[in-house]
Simulated scan of single mutants.
Amino acid sequence: MLKHLKILTFVLCVAAISFFTKTFLNQNSTYIVKYLISKGILPITEKDYYQIFKSENIPSYNISPSDVLQQGNGIFFLETTDRMEEPSLVLCSIESAARLYPDRPVVFFMKGLDDIVNVDDEKKARERYPTLSFYKNIYIFPLRLDKVFADTPLLAWYEKVDPKRENYWTNVKADACRIALIWKYGGIYMDTDVISIRPIPEDNFLAAEHATSMSNTVFGLSPHHNLMWEFMENFVQNYRGNVWGFQGPTLFTRVVKKHCGVLNFTSVDHLKCANVSYFHPERFYPMQYGSWGKYYEVWKDLPTFNNSYGLHLWNYMNKGRKFMMVGSNTLVEHLYQQYCPSTYESILKNVTSHH
């Protein structure tokens, strides 16, 4: 009797699930089903959920950057051109961050990417880059400038600026995007030529590039931080797009100088001003721009970078002249092997298959 009762209960549960699912599907209320599943009210797996929706020709529930970044702890990378075939250094930078921060979403915004409508679209976007698809905390979304700048001081500037008359449009829009995204979502921004090697111990920080100038290569602030709003206002009010770096490192430098004066580092320890930590250049620039080529040289004794959280490889100085070469025994090869092994293995297999 008890056995038959259990069977009857199971059948009724299945029937109830089927009824509710069909009802919600007919109402196109896919988000309700997602919510019920996430709360355990509908005890079916996401795999089953996707199969149900596909069989009914109804798309999976929507996914947006807001869904992924709602905790304010995201790590951001940008591709502001239409390029889709990313160099290995870009993939290495993203992979190294995903490995180092497994509990944080690592988001790559790409201007050339088609719209992401649902979870399946986002998965397909990630699968374009097999070395990244292994990491479940990596997300790839399209970069839509009008949406990024909405509800910020940058929107009015963007609507009137003429890209054809801009000398450094790719750089300027990248400078604008990063401050708007961190304002909206909070988290850490990194350029795609920064290899992460140690966790950053602060949430609200800026990094000095030189003793007297700030950098916008790596920085982190909480959502809607007043300093980030000031960056956006200053960007628009003092816009000089024809001057290299004026909307980027120079912007950060002039705003910080206004609040803190010239920072005086006497050690590699952080300085504090206005509840923000300021990092010594050693933290991300252990090699200054004039020494960028040393990353592509063979070292007798490899540097430890004990005082660094990440390594900026100065890609704009390189301009595609040097690459990581398998078997070269260069410093950059060792960095790939240690901090982005999936990217390195992919390059190694590609080299091996062509011999």
Rank of each mutant, 00 (worst) to 15 (best):
L2F: 15
I7N: 09
L8Q: 14
F10Q: 10
V11E: 09
S18H: 12
F20G: 06
F20Y: 14
T23S: 11
F24D: 03
Y31P: 00
I32Y: 07
V33H: 05
Y35V: 09
I37E: 00
I37M: 08
S38W: 07
L42A: 05
L42V: 15
P43S: 09
T45A: 09
I58E: 07
S60N: 11
S60F: 10
S60Y: 10
Y61F: 11
S64A: 09
S66C: 08
D67M: 07
V68F: 04
N73F: 05
G74I: 02
E79S: 06
R83Y: 05
M84H: 06
P87R: 08
L91K: 08
L91Y: 02
S93T: 05
I94K: 00
E95Q: 12
A97C: 09
A97S: 12
L100I: 05
D103T: 14
D103H: 14
R104I: 03
V107E: 00
M110G: 01
M110W: 02
L113R: 03
V117K: 14
D121M: 01
K136Q: 14
N137D: 08
I140M: 08
R144A: 06
L145Y: 12
D146C: 08
V148R: 02
A150D: 15
D151Q: 14
A156D: 15
K160Q: 13
K160F: 08
K164V: 10
E166Y: 04
T170Q: 14
N171K: 11
V172A: 07
A174T: 08
D175Y: 08
C177F: 06
I179Y: 04
A180C: 15
L181I: 15
W183A: 05
G187Y: 00
I188C: 01
I188N: 00
M190R: 06
D191S: 01
I195M: 07
R198A: 10
A211L: 15
T212F: 12
S213R: 13
T217M: 08
F219E: 02
L221F: 10
P223C: 06
H224V: 08
H225A: 07
N226E: 15
N226G: 09
M228V: 12
W229S: 12
F235Y: 10
F235T: 03
V236Y: 04
V236G: 02
N238K: 13
G241E: 01
W244Y: 14
T250R: 11
F252Q: 01
R254T: 10
G261Q: 03
F265S: 04
F265P: 00
T266S: 12
D269I: 03
D269Q: 10
C273L: 05
S277R: 14
F279M: 09
H280G: 03
E282R: 13
E282F: 07
E282C: 09
R283S: 11
Y285C: 03
G290M: 10
K294M: 11
K294S: 11
W299H: 13
K300S: 12
D301G: 01
D301P: 00
L302C: 08
Y309V: 00
Y309H: 07
L311E: 02
W314H: 13
K319P: 01
R321K: 15
K322L: 15
M325K: 15
V326A: 09
S328F: 04
N329V: 05
V332N: 00
V332H: 01
L335C: 06
L335R: 02
Q337H: 06
Q337R: 13
Y339E: 02
Y339F: 15
P341K: 05
S342N: 13
T343P: 04
S346I: 06
K349A: 14
K349F: 10
